[in-house]
Amino acid sequence: MGARGRRPQLRLPPDEGELTVRALVIDDSRVMRLIIAGILEDLGYEVRQAGHGREGLDVLDGGWIPDLVCVDWNMPVMDGLQFVSAARSNPAWRSLTIMMVTSESEHGQIVRALAAGAHEYVIKPFTADAIRGKLALLGLLPEEVVL
């Protein structure tokens, strides 16, 4: 699967003086959000969470633009594919790197997600190492973390 990798736009928080990378985790399962957010926070990410695609768009509309979005596929209100399409239709959000994290594992579904504008695809169940590996491919692994 071809990752359209690029370096993250590292931000400099005014208070802490450290480089941070932001991630938005969108999943209707709170437990799964906590698992993914935990992995990313351990890597140094600043993470926000949303329970479905519409909530995810609300976060973006509010001006909090992450470097990475991890989005589930099957969710109520707005599913992951709809979120990807909506996010890609807004030029202001072109810099977002989108990674689908889902139990939808058929080749056709992966192709649909990538065609809609997702950069990477992680199939549940995943390990923390699998997430770190995908982030390395995307150039979104904070440099102080060694694989």
């Binding site: 099957n74 889902t102 139990s103 939808e104 594992s105 058929e106 056709g108 549940k124 169940p125």
Partner: peptide, 22 residues
């Protein structure tokens, strides 16, 4: 979520196309 993960991978080996519920 465990049921979802197991179900999603069961779905992947069934004849398709299939839709997975919540």
């Amino acid at each position: 979520e465990l049921a979802n993960v197991v179900g999603g991978n069961v779905k992947a080996v069934l004849p398709g196309p299939c839709v997975l519920g919540l």
